[in-house]
Amino acid sequence: MEVNDIMIENLAHLARLQFTDLGKNEFKTDLQRMITFVEQLKEVDTTNVKPLLHLSDTVNVLREDVLVESISQELALKNAPKKDNNFFLVPKVIKK
């Protein structure tokens, strides 16, 4: 798979990252190397092999539907870069 500028820009947008031109080129080279490395797996014949959806052998780790005490509002908001007495505050997300 060829890693091109459009792909890098798209990925950067999805991850909300911004690159300089220099940075973009470095990422392009790195990503190309990673993908080429992983693509070696394509050589293995996987006909009749079920896709692997999870690595762990552990299954059915379920909890009963019981309440556990929540943390305080103060503690919940403690690490927020912007807050008031009740809410996390973020830049306005809709235009009126």
Partner: peptide, 15 residues
């Protein structure tokens, strides 16, 4: 939930 009508330039988040 996002609440948009408390501040002019900020949205409030209730989780």
């Amino acid at each position: 939930k996002s609440i948009h009508d408390i501040y002019d330039d900020l949205s409030c988040i209730d989780l």
